[in-house]
């Protein structure tokens, strides 16, 4: 089955996936990830501002995947997590360079830049954020 990700669909997300750029609402102070152009709480009063996440946060929940998504067959077992960024937004990302026995809700993590997947048959390589334990790297 050919990979479905079109070039443009990957390319247009580069600011978010490479640099964690997103938006926040100045009116209520809520940080979004991915970006919203409109605050669901403040609605017409929303004042949307651009921000780039610092890239540090805590594991909110996680799982070790043994039956992979298509394109991730070589990586099993791999760790997927919901990370709560220090700014407050939560996002889904893989954890890498982590020992499975160290996995814990609340563990501090920081962003790193990795390959996520690639198109089949010499297709384009998709890069994006993954997270790695802070204690495990550069103490």
């Amino acid at each position: 089955m050919p990979h479905r990700k079109s070039l443009a669909s990957v390319w247009r997300r580069i600011p978010q996936r490479y640099r964690m750029e997103s938006t926040m609402c100045e009116t209520c102070g809520t940080y979004f990830f991915p970006p919203r152009n409109f605050c669901p709480t403040c609605r017409r009063k929303s004042k949307i501002k651009h921000y780039a996440a610092k890239g540090t946060g805590k594991v909110y929940s996680y799982t070790v995947i043994h039956v992979p998504q298509e394109g991730f067959e070589l990586e099993i077992p791999y760790v997927l997590a919901v990370v709560e960024l220090d700014e407050g937004a939560k996002l889904t990302a893989q954890l890498c360079d982590v020992d499975l026995e160290d996995l814990k809700i609340g563990m501090p993590v920081e962003v790193t830049f990795r390959r996520i997947s690639e198109g089949k048959g010499g297709g384009i390589i998709h890069y994006a954020y993954k997270f790695t334990p802070i204690s495990g790297q550069n103490k």
Partner: peptide
């Protein structure tokens, strides 16, 4: 774009 892209499966 924000879950499956990162390798999320439904389970």
């Amino acid at each position: 774009e924000w879950e499956v892209f990162h390798g999320a499966t439904f389970p």
